[in-house]
């Protein structure tokens, strides 16, 4: 397995407000890495900076050994994909238009978009039934599936997902995570940012924990002994009774 996404000493934030303070993380092809951390730990900021939506204030991000310093568009063209939090699809467009837009970077490749749409419908049959509906009319779970399918359209080599479970009912979460688990099969490198511990650990190969802008735990899931440290990082130390 090769290192697909390497983050070294990343510092990021908004102006004087530094949210990510020296984060290093390596994700490999064919592996699913989950980055856990409670809200406010800096997860979304990390992903936005990797994708070039926010400028890095320090450190480096590289894809397949190539340092990424350019715009978001150039990083997407280099094989990066990001599913943003909040089921962020183009709500005023139909399902199929959203998928086409997902393939924007491969639009000149003959048949790439049509094949991508076929693959998307195979993966998420419900989207085919709703292909001509506006994305805003979909349920939360369906919007999340559409967001993932959209990011997969250009066949990225590294896919990052930002809290895909947020705002979804438990049964839907299971379904979505089932799909996420299957993504690594074709050698895709997946970086999943989550708050839900157990669903994530069930599908992940590696786990990293982000707290106050730094990685506090970084190990293989199988080597993770107890969940207590994770739990404390979320809910605080047990209250003495």
């Amino acid at each position: 397995m090769t290192d697909a996404l390497v983050i070294t000493d990343l510092v990021a934030g908004y102006g004087q407000l530094k949210i990510v303070r020296g984060l290093s993380l390596t994700c490999r092809s064919g592996e699913l890495t989950v980055l856990l951390g409670r809200n406010g730990a800096g997860k979304t900021t990390t992903l936005s900076t990797i994708a070039g939506l926010l400028p890095a204030l320090g450190g480096e991000v590289s894809l397949h050994g190539v340092p990424q310093r350019g715009s978001t568009v150039s990083r997407i063209k280099s094989g990066l994909g990001l599913v943003q939090e909040g089921k962020r699809v183009f709500r005023a467009r139909t399902v199929e238009e959203n998928l086409k837009l997902g393939g924007y970077t491969v639009r000149r490749k003959r048949g790439a978009i049509d094949e991508g749409i076929v693959r998307a419908y195979e993966r998420f049959p419900i989207l085919k039934d709703k292909r001509h509906q506006l994305a805003s009319a979909l349920s939360g779970g369906q919007q999340q599936m559409l967001a993932i399918a959209q990011a997969l359209m250009p066949q990225p080599t590294v896919l990052m997902l930002d809290e895909p479970s947020a705002g979804l009912a438990p049964s839907i979460v299971e379904e979505v995570f089932g799909e996420i688990a299957s993504l690594t099969r074709d050698g895709l490198c997946v970086l999943l940012v989550e708050q839900l511990i157990d669903h994530s650990l069930a599908v992940a190969d590696r786990v990293a924990v982000l707290d106050h802008g730094r990685i506090t735990i970084d190990t293989e899931v199988s080597k993770l002994g107890s969940w207590d440290t994770l739990r404390e990082s979320y809910l605080g130390a047990p209250v003495a009774e």
Binding site: P170, Q195, L196, I197, D198, H199, S200, L201, A202, W227, L230, R231, Y234, L235, G236, V239
Partner: peptide
Amino acid sequence: VRNDPAVIESYLGKAA
């Protein structure tokens, strides 16, 4: 609230 199972599940998941 801290020890409420439903709360733990909503934050951490079912296994937790």
